[in-house]
């Protein structure tokens, strides 16, 4: 294998990894900051991918409208989920109910969209850096878009009133309540916003992967891996570790073969959990509630 191929693999890994980071950041926000463990997370991403495909490809709705519809829908889904089944603090109950929601989503997708794998079949325009090294245009756009979304989310949390309210509620609910913040509404809002990120991530993933109803499981384990590598609750870190996982995933596929990709990656996940459950980069117990 030449050095050029190697660089291509790494570049490809970095670009996909950025999107992995975005996908995982919503999970890490939910689990780490909001203390809501959402196991229907992967299938929500999958649903976003399917909807993107059908809105744009099958029903020929202009992209802008499609995105607006998707955003509205996912904001509502997030809001409803938080109001009905996730308004408790018991992790066990949350895990079980969201797993149930996952099954509902998967089976509804099978009923309405059938289990047939779907693909956007975008003709990828390559940008040549040198004669042999190139990157895909959509991938490049997605990568920078993912970074932009994360940065703007960070700004939202730090600069706007709503964002600061979210941080206040996350840090000390009781005090925030005394200060006149309706903490329940704020939690609803935060959870719904995290669903917007899922919608964005779904659109991006749809341009890169082919989707089938169980794609969510794969995406979820990848998010777990990314989150745990960065430490749950660490959003900036999850973008970085997403890139690392992306590179790793690309390397495993080319060096060992595609059939080893999932077992090796998932095995690695269990190993990291056992050795450094607080994340590879977190020094000791500086974990969770950091946004």
């Amino acid at each position: 294998m030449g050095i050029d191929t190697f660089i291509n693999i790494i570049l490809n890994g970095i670009l996909i990894g950025g999107v992995y980071g975005l996908v995982a950041s919503a999970f890490t926000f939910q689990a780490g900051a909001l203390q809501i463990v959402n196991f229907s997370y992967g299938s929500s991403t999958m649903l976003a991918m399917y909807l993107t495909f059908f809105l744009i490809k099958e029903w020929n709705i202009p992209i802008v409208f499609a995105v607006v519809i998707l955003f509205a829908l996912f904001f509502t889904i997030g809001w409803i989920m938080r109001r009905t089944i996730l308004n408790n603090t018991n992790h066990g109950t949350q895990i079980l109910t969201t797993m149930a929601v996952e099954l509902v989503i998967i089976n509804l997708v099978i009923i309405f969209f059938t289990g047939f794998p779907r693909d956007m079949a975008i003709f990828e325009k390559r940008i040549n850096i040198t004669d042999t090294i190139s990157v895909g245009l959509t991938q490049l756009i997605c990568f920078f878009l993912a970074a932009a979304v994360l940065v703007s989310f960070h700004l939202f949390l730090n600069k706007t009133w709503a964002g600061m309210s979210i941080r206040a509620v996350v840090q000390k609910k009781e005090i925030a309540n005394i200060m006149g913040i309706n903490s329940e509404r704020i939690m609803d809002l935060a959870f719904s916003i995290s669903y917007l990120i899922i919608a964005i991530a779904g659109i991006m993933l749809m341009t890169m992967f082919q989707v089938e109803p169980h794609f969510g499981n794969y995406m979820m384990t990848i998010s777990f891996l990314v989150c745990v590598t960065a430490g749950i609750g660490n959003m900036g870190g999850s973008f970085l570790s997403g890139i690392i996982i992306g590179i790793l995933s690309a390397l495993i596929t080319t060096l060992l073969g595609a059939q080893f990709h999932d077992p090796v990656l998932f095995g690695l996940f269990v190993l990291i959990l056992l050795v450094r459950p607080n994340g590879l980069f977190n020094s000791s117990k500086r974990i969770a509630r950091q946004i």
């Binding site: 009905t84 089944i85 308004n87 408790n88 603090t89 018991n90 066990g92 109950t93 079980l96 109910t97 797993m99 149930a100 929601v101 099954l103 509902v104 089976n107 509804l108 099978i110 009923i111």
Partner: peptide
């Protein structure tokens, strides 16, 4: 078949709504 799975899932969700603090 998908409907039967959905029914299972709904049973669980309803139970969770009725017992929010401690399904297990």
């Amino acid at each position: 078949a998908p409907f039967s799975v959905i029914i299972y899932a709904l049973v669980l969700i309803i139970m969770a709504i009725r017992h929010p603090e401690g399904l297990i």
